[in-house]
Amino acid sequence: MTATDAPVSETAPATPGPARRTLAVFTRNKLALTGALVLLGLLTFCFLGPLIHPTDQIHTDLSQAGLAPGGNHPLGTTDLGYDLLGRLMYGGRTSLEVGLAAGLLATLLGTVYGAVAGYLGGWADAAMMRITDAALAIPALFLLVVVAAIVTPSKPVLILIIASVAWLSPARLIRGEALALRSRDYLHAMRLMGGGGSRAVFRHILPNAIGTVIVNATFQIADAILYVAYLSFLGLSIPPPAADWGSMLSAGITYTQVGHWWLIFPPGIAIVLVVAAFNFIGDGLRDAFDVRLEKS
């Protein structure tokens, strides 16, 4: 990504605090700002939209099935007569809620695991990292599908399933960071003063890695939203009448043959927008925190 590279010290005579400096770099990055605005727009659409455009997303109405966009239904209706605009808001809530929660949970789990592995080093680190290597070797979607086939997902279960697979990459990332931090002088000093392992991890390593953690969290959320969509598309998400953007696409696939394009484009574009928005925000934050990390 393009870094806004004007050094902060030149622009600010009275040195502002780190939070404001971070915000300043972030807002100077146009893509990141666009991403944040798009995300804000989507959140407003999904959570406040139903106040302006209330629809029934539980009961089917076959007399209104398969209508093209127009009139009372600006985006048409589904094969079961749900208003598509309303369903886009309703389904978006599931996608966003599950994606946000799963992404954050995965980051939390991965961060603690990685920080502990990196801090311990040696054999413990090697053993912990081989476990993540093995789990990463199995394609994530396959693991997700197997777990989703064993337990029937509800919203909280889906969050747990996705987090249980997605924590692996932040774990690896933070472990690298912790490995670099553990040999710093202030950690030696802390140990000499009698500080223990948990103090080292929670008071020293994690706060120092916080930039990496936050940046990674945004990418994790983007990935989690995609995972929700993939699972729903494969028919393994929360059963109907619940909906999310992935299951809306999956329901629309049969009707591509009769040209019902309005079932495909709105949810698909919504997914692309939200995932791109989180990625742009993540890139902007990376520049803002000035952390260099591989986006995997």
Binding site: A222, L226, A229, Y230, F233, G246, L249, S250, G252, I253, T256, G259, W261, I264, F265, G268, I271, V272, L273, V275, A276, N279, F280
Partner: peptide, 17 residues
């Protein structure tokens, strides 16, 4: 960047359409 954010199945559906 657009391709990164596009799920494989959405792309496939658009191509089919």
């Amino acid at each position: 960047f657009l391709a990164y954010a596009t799920p494989v199945f959405f792309l496939g559906l658009v191509l089919i359409l």
